[in-house]
């Protein structure tokens, strides 16, 4: 697929259209922004960042139970 960004959460890959904000991508995937931090090439991102074609964003779940 062209013009896409890959998001990875706990080994699960999701593909979204590039050009939208990270916040829009999270909403589209029904992932609550409060439940993850987002990392691109080792750098932490705020949700207003635009997603670029071909890049991969790692989503780190922040909820720990027990």
């Amino acid at each position: 697929m062209k013009n896409t960004t890959t998001l990875i959460l706990r080994n699960q890959k999701y593909e979204v259209k590039a050009g939208m904000t990270l916040l829009s991508a999270l909403k589209k995937l029904e992932i609550l922004p409060e439940s993850v931090i987002c990392v691109r090439e080792g750098e932490l991102l705020t949700e207003d960042n635009m997603l670029k074609d071909g890049e991969t964003i790692k989503l780190v779940s922040v909820i720990s139970g027990g």
């Binding site: 409060e34 993850v36 931090i37 922040v62 720990s64």
Partner: peptide
């Protein structure tokens, strides 16, 4: 602190 802040 929010859990998200501690993860960050």
């Amino acid at each position: 602190f929010y859990e998200r802040e501690m993860a960050a």
